[in-house]
Amino acid sequence: MTAQSTELQYETLQVHDLSIVYKTIYGDLKAVNKLNLSLRRAESVAVVGESGSGKSTLGLSIVKLLPGNARYKEGSITLNGQDVEKLKDRDLTRMRGSSAFMIFQDPLNALNPVKRVKDQMYEALNTRNSREGGTLDKEAGLKELIESLRSVRMPDPELIINRYPHQLSGGQIQRVVIAMGLLMRPKLLIADEPTSALDVTIQAQVLKLMRDLQKEYGMSILFVTHDISIAYAVSDRIIVMYAGEIVEDGPTEKVIRKSLHPYSQALIASIPKKTKDQGDLTTITGSPPNMLNPPSGCRFHPRCPFVMEKCLTTSPNFVENDDRRVRCFLYGG
């Protein structure tokens, strides 16, 4: 996307031509390939894709938490005007929290098991205070902690705050983690499948909470998920990833109602909407690509029902139209 310079300052996140590879004994695994993406203030974007599509790698690369064998091969990530790759360790700690906060799939690993919830939340508050140069008042601090738990719809925050993580349920821990994130007042919340370990009813609570926070605090959300129905519930814009590339990007309602790329169409069609007496479910033939050696041309071509001659050899470019973009020769490319 070619953002004009006047527009640039409104962008919370700018990812430009990002390529990330993992070094493995079998060779370089190209997890993310020349990816461009930008996120506005108070915008909620869902990244949808199957396992191995590079969606989690994208999330981790923004907060620089990639595993040791990953390399930023090319491109840049600009978060609130700062180039993430060039940040030193000290500044990184500051960035994680104030600029971006990440929550993970398994909330049980996110908290320290031998410390009370209260003490762990104080740490977040302390970090913010030292950043702002203020001192921490215990009384006022405690009040703020309880207030933040209340804002994530936690029942009985006065009791919860004195408990240890193992005394809480998965949904409660996920809410504590989100509350800690809120104390840091990040501009961008990156959530990597934050609800897959939770029950359906608790999941609905967390999703609704994220929506509310986005509106109340003007926080941007990057929501990584494999479930297109969850993406629909939580986002303003959906990005569909396949084999390390964005194949479609557009407003949620439009992408769901009339998706353009054959892969997004297949993904949406594979949600069971009928009963077994009404016939077979639509399937995507073939299996996900091997990222050590991705297919030539358009990476979806071996599984695509509309495959043409040039898809085999040439990689399509984005076709942009209004607020949508799609990477497919069916629309020009």
């Binding site: 349920s169 359906v200 609570q205």
Partner: peptide, 22 residues
């Protein structure tokens, strides 16, 4: 009823979660 209205679908954007814990 609560379970069905808490499940995300591509038809319904407004989830109505039941209160409380399991």
């Amino acid at each position: 009823q609560a379970l069905l209205s808490a499940v995300p679908t591509t038809e319904n954007k407004d989830l109505v979660p039941p209160v409380g814990e399991v």
